[in-house]
């Protein structure tokens, strides 16, 4: 996506008051208690173990730490992780500060 296109997208989103995750390629993460984590708009699995899991995103990575982690379901856009989640970290998006 070119720089101009991104600017244009952001501008239209702002104009129509649309949520950010719909127009731009950012992940939407929903955590239910400490047991379930839904990640939309992921780009695949980088690492997967019972305690630690790293998902690649359009930009950067999402790291999930916990115990007994299991991929309950996985689809091209969405992933559902279950287990005792203790930490969710986002890497490689530090430059996207407002």
């Amino acid at each position: 996506m070119s720089r101009i296109m991104r600017k244009l997208n952001q501008w239209t989103a702002h104009l129509f008051d649309l949520p950010q995750d719909i127009v731009s390629d950012v992940p939407r993460v929903s955590l239910i208690g400490n047991r379930k984590l839904f990640v939309e708009n992921h780009r695949g699995i980088v690492h997967f173990s019972n305690e630690n899991m790293r998902l690649s995103l359009a930009k950067g990575e999402l790291e999930v730490t916990g115990s007994e982690l299991v991929i309950r379901g996985i689809w091209t856009e969405e992933i559902c992780i279950e287990g005792y989640i203790t930490e969710v970290k986002v890497h490689g998006m530090e430059d996207a500060k407002p």
Binding site: G44, V46, F48, S49, N50, V70, I71, G73, I74, T76
Partner: peptide, 24 residues
């Protein structure tokens, strides 16, 4: 390279569920 395999399956839209790491 199990992660790589999972990503390939995702790309081909093969449905998998209850993925669990049993060993390294």
């Amino acid at each position: 390279h199990t992660e790589q395999l999972l990503n390939l399956l995702l790309a081909k839209r093969i449905t998998i569920w209850d993925v669990r790491r049993t060993d390294d």
